[in-house]
């Protein structure tokens, strides 16, 4: 009788405690839930680059993908562009593709920017923001790393150094 009461009380307290703990945990990780879940399959997309060529993410399965979101008005994006370009040249034939998705600016602005910085990797235009919505992009620059199975393995916002870009690319290199 006494024992049963103790068990009952323990169970009730445990349930209540667990509920509170979960709520607190969820409250402090709610910012994290606003991005694509790590380890999940990256949302597929099809976009056309400045040269008119179509890129489909799922076509790159078997390779790692360095997926960068950027805008011409974003200073840190501008600063990391040359590093990305260098590393792109290193890795493009070693199994890591670089895709830089512009966040819906005019083609003119993007192409002038690309000419000015002499960028060689594919610049994709996400005109109506569908891909940004799918990847829940907020602050720029934002970078996702996708492995050869098409799964998201890393997410980073803010400017990258050349060293970091290199490490990232090595990480998803097959």
């Amino acid at each position: 009788m006494k024992k049963r009461r103790l068990v009952m009380r323990s169970v009730i307290l445990l349930i209540l405690g667990a509920a509170v703990a979960y709520t607190l945990y969820a409250n402090f990780t709610k910012e994290d839930s606003k991005k694509v879940v790590m380890g999940e399959k990256a949302p597929d997309f099809v976009l056309v680059d400045l040269d008119g060529e179509t890129h489909r993410l799922s076509d790159y399965e078997g390779q790692g993908v360095f997926l960068n979101f950027w805008g011409t008005y974003c200073k840190p994006c501008e600063r990391e562009m040359p590093y990305m370009d260098n590393q792109y040249k290193q890795f493009k034939d070693n199994g890591v593709q670089t895709l830089a998705v512009n966040v819906g600016e005019s083609e003119l602005a993007v192409s002038k920017f690309t000419e000015r910085h002499n960028l060689s990797f594919p610049i994709l235009l996400d005109k109506d923001g569908q891909v940004q919505t799918a990847y829940k992009i907020g602050a720029l620059p934002a970078t996702y790393l996708i492995d050869k199975e098409g799964k998201v393995v890393k997410y980073h916002t803010g400017q990258l150094t050349e060293e970091m870009i290199k490490d990232f690319m090595e990480e998803v290199q097959p």
Partner: peptide
Amino acid sequence: EIMSYFPDFEFNTEGEPTTKSK
């Protein structure tokens, strides 16, 4: 011919024309 386009124009600290947003 449009050489450059700045949708939300301002001069940056170096005095170059830039855009604040899209």
